[in-house]
Design a binder for these strands. Sequence first.
DNA 1: TAATTATTTTAGATTCGCCTAAAATATTAT
DNA 2: ATAATATTTTAGGCGAATCTAAAATAATTA
Lengths: 224, 224
Amino acid sequence: MIANLSITEENYIKAIYHLQQTDGNVTTNEVAEMLHTKAASVTDMLKKLNAKNIVNYAKYQGFTLSDDGRKIALSIVRKHRLWEYFLVEKLQFGWDEVHEVAEELEHISSLKLVEKLDAFLEYPKFDPHGDPIPDVNGKMVYQPQINLTDLPPSELAEVTAVGSQSTELLELLKHKKIAIGTKIIIKKKFLFDNSIEIKLQNQAAFTISQQLAQALFVKKTPNE
Amino acid sequence: MIANLSITEENYIKAIYHLQQTDGNVTTNEVAEMLHTKAASVTDMLKKLNAKNIVNYAKYQGFTLSDDGRKIALSIVRKHRLWEYFLVEKLQFGWDEVHEVAEELEHISSLKLVEKLDAFLEYPKFDPHGDPIPDVNGKMVYQPQINLTDLPPSELAEVTAVGSQSTELLELLKHKKIAIGTKIIIKKKFLFDNSIEIKLQNQAAFTISQQLAQALFVKKTPNE
DNA sequence: TAATTATTTTAGATTCGCCTAAAATATTAT
DNA sequence: ATAATATTTTAGGCGAATCTAAAATAATTA
Ligand SMILES: [Mn+2]
Ligand SMILES: [Mn+2]
Ligand SMILES: [Mn+2]
Ligand SMILES: [Mn+2]
């Protein structure tokens, strides 16, 4: 059951995992776009992963991860998010700076390292972007959250996650002083451009774009 | 000046660095042996590194690192030893378990990561095996130390470093309760097999082999 | 349904790191 | 100095991961 995969193979497996979270069945072009490579390269890799029983693949039909594939993907996601947590909490990185570094660290193979790191960090449940960290067995906390655009006006909510790790998004959030845990109330929705007027604690209300609202996930907070 | 080297290239550069510490001029076969590869592969890589001005190489003449090459090597050694320190001091690894993991971690490219890690560890000067950690500028503490075989009898000394990171050596040292910092006195040298009778604090004297003695480096301690 | 367009796969090359076998060069022994 | 041996380099090839261009298949549109 011990995998011994190349960094490239691991990156493909993780990409397929993330794509099938939203899409179900994954396509060649989606993977190519996500990994900044070409469709032909993806097909080559799919044949390899299929031969290793990591992916269920039939020509022209799309594909999904096998059970083994999903386990591997979860172990990579686990490492990625644990390292991100380490970078932010222990090394004082900004939450907008950690993704690229974790992209490398997630490929360090030592199992012992992951478990010791997890213990050192005291078994965190969420990474700095609000995404759940799988445990040793691949289990993670399900956080019931909704998109900010689906939050009704006047209800207090708390930011739980962001929809992407792009520098651009995180830069904007930093400027607007919005982070994981920030309390938010929707004041008004504008139908013209789907922009939303929101209010944070101890701050004047301001308006954010539809794009930004869609990138924010929240959970409703008991209005104490 | 930014390098962007493959992991393989980095491993060659580090190997050449270590070999030239003892040998001065380095040979193809030495590198091949250290990296468990073949002489022909080393020649291929030397051409590449020569083209990048990382090594001074002339056919059949042996080679050394260029100034650039040395800088690169030092930055890899710095990362390797910082990570080893991290693994032992923060994650509670044994000193005999960290070398292989650091062999991977040393290739993580983020400069910011190294500096933040160094700060987090409070700028350690030596790794768990007693080897000095280069600072950002490649400078490291010179520790005047001698081989245990050169220590005169009856002089109190302290173990400062070990000559290799092999599991076999570290296992033996653990069993004999010898570590970095351990105080040692030589009781007697046996000419027949160059074995040495030594005594540690609060322990009965025992004899160690020539091979083991050669793997230990010490500094003389003011006999308070 | 048939034609057009989009997607996916194959074919054929390229680069990197590695190998074995043979040739070139250097070293050592006679 | 010449021969034998050791070391290093070259020649030629292989697998992994990538690419472009062309062919195969699927999906969409007319
Ligand atoms: Mn990655
Ligand atoms: Mn994250
Ligand atoms: Mn290495
Ligand atoms: Mn070390």
